[in-house]
Design a protein around this nucleic acid. Structure first.
Lengths: 337, 337
DNA sequence: CTGAAAGCGCTTACAG
DNA sequence: CTGAAAGCGCTTACAG
């Protein structure tokens, strides 16, 4: 193992000189001394031990990202991760990823190692589903500065505005002249977005004096993938079928498209207008579906910023933030006026 | 900040007693002493400082995962991450994620912080595209124990057997009686899998005395998503169209399905058999496409194991591993015998 | 059965 | 302009 001590020996200066030259006090030393030290460090492949530094500074130089093992949409996940990471790089912080099942946390004895040891300056907590009470308790007990991602807490949380997005999507289709607008969701799940998007849609419909039409799984249940095309076909075949549909996610839109185009000979957007939610313009199948884009990158980035803030103020509470979603237009909507 | 010292004070014992009771020497102490210490630690919310421990042990207790910023399939990414993580938990290791663009590494002066500082015991390197020579150089220079994921290096690497999977997929369709089997890829990219899967297919075709038919983008180029349905339609309309197609990924299969089913009124598998590559059975659209499954979880898990091995033997070289892919059957293939 | 002391690798006042 | 020394929070041989 190469230590600063060894660099000092090789370059014939003291340990503290090495530290200062390689740190932010290089300007205090003669060019000659600096050169000697830098050359020796390079030759030996010296890398300062981050633990030693952390001990001195009292800061670990890392934050932890806590993930549930419950299913979550992975592309979302990656973009958020990148947003977090980019912000951390700016602050010279490392990113520690941890992950454990909700179930483990209901067990009284279980304390995950990221909480048990002091190895991060703060925590980003990304639980798409419900947050186990015991987790909140553990974190409060240990007084770890934390920010909750995708959570509806009043403080120290950040999430996208799912309700507002439901409204925006609906009003967009209303403006195109649609009246029979449905909302479809084939997956259940305890996350608030499942209800919020739907409620935003229903709210906008009622505002326009129209009756909401909800298609698909109710909260908690979920359609098997293999049944989704068939289920879509059923409601698409009815004579008073909607002229436009808002889908919970791209994965909801796909079987609907398959049923409409493949089985019933319909065209999009000629016979059916579509708007979906996703993390970017949903065009996996070659057809660009107009999308309410979840700002995953910004979510991650802002969460990281909030956490840095909290770490600086040793855990002081911050007001929660709600990020607006934007509609990105594809080729899946048509005016029927 | 709560230190072991404070726990010692509160419980009226010495610092070293606290350390030993909370460590793995608890059995050496009287039950009464143990209780006192544990209670005090709990009351104060004591968490041992991992840096201090790391300094003593000479091991950081963490490994680093290096990611390229170049596009990669995100769901793959998540499963691999989980495989890595599960294995690390078993060894009580933390996971540090880092990420930087290939371009940055061509810059002579740039050394990413995960390499510049000594903050991990070893590195998992996941570059789907080409590995910048400078990165290899940096890692060798610093003598960091490393394992390369998705790389064709002879040592210290792990990857799935893309060539073999191409063969398996083709032989499966041959056995079902297909002769006009095509291979389709709409994306380019420098990764070896692009060529290996195709070459495996071509190899199996030639073995069977048949001429390979490659459809779509050649290496390096890539079809825009919006053109993929149209492109698919073109080759599907020809009179001698293939009866079966192997696609590079699910994202290649989707527009083909859309063109076949939606535009040409074909059925799968009646009029066209499909096999694809993906990280799990590809049924996004409600139709289960038979899939050569990339063992992402095992890839991550095994890579982590290899790295742990290397860390123990202070970086000694390990032979590379190649993981076989399995065919998971959906409803997209039909015998035509 | 418990405690005093050394030391892991650094940084930073302080002395010269 | 450079160096000796203290100390960050732990663990572990060693003494008692």
């Amino acid at each position: 193992m190469v230590t600063a001590e060894k660099v000092a020996q090789l370059s014939g200066v003291s340990l503290s000189t090495v530290s200062q030259v390689l740190g932010d006090r290089a300007h205090l030393f003669r060019a000659e001394t600096r050169e000697k030290v830098v050359r020796a460090a390079q030759k030996l492949g010296y890398r300062p031990n981050s633990s030693a530094r952390a001990m001195r500074s009292g800061r670990l130089g890392a934050i932890g990202l806590l993930l549930s093992t419950e299913e979550h949409r992975s592309s979302l996940f990656e973009k958020m991760l990148v947003g977090i990471y980019d912000e951390l790089v700016r602050q010279n912080l490392r990113l520690n990823v941890a992950r454990f099942p909700d179930k483990a946390l209901t067990d009284e004895g279980f304390v995950p190692q990221i909480l048990r040891e002091w190895s991060c300056d703060g925590l980003l907590i990304n639980y798409n589903a419900l947050i186990p009470p015991r987790m909140v308790e553990l974190i409060q007990n240990y007084k770890i500065p934390s920010v909750w991602i995708n959570s509806q807490r009043d403080t120290d949380a950040i999430r996208p505005d799912d309700f507002g997005a439901g409204v925006i999507a609906t009003e967009y289709l209303l403006k195109l002249g649609h009246r029979r607008i449905a909302y479809a969701s084939y997956s259940g799940g305890g996350h608030y977005s499942t209800t919020d998007r739907r409620d935003g849609y229903a709210h906008a419909m009622k505002q326009a004096g129209l009756a909401p039409q909800i298609i698909g799984a109710q909260t908690g249940s979920s359609f098997e993938r293999s049944q989704r095309i068939q289920a879509s076909r059923q409601w698409l075949e009815q004579s008073d079928r909607p002229t436009a549909v808002i889908t919970y996610a791209g994965s909801t839109a796909l079987p609907i498209i398959m049923a409409a185009i493949g089985e019933l000979g319909m065209r999009v957007p000629r016979d059916l207008s579509l708007v979906t939610f996703d993390d970017s313009l949903f065009d996996d199948c070659g057809l660009a579906v107009s999308t309410m884009v979840i700002p995953e990158y910004e979510l991650g980035q802002t969460a990281a910023r909030m956490l840095e803030q909290k770490i600086k103020t040793s855990g002081q509470s911050l007001p929660s933030q709600v990020l607006t979603m934007q509609l990105v237009q594809g080729n899946s909507c048509q005016s029927i006026i």
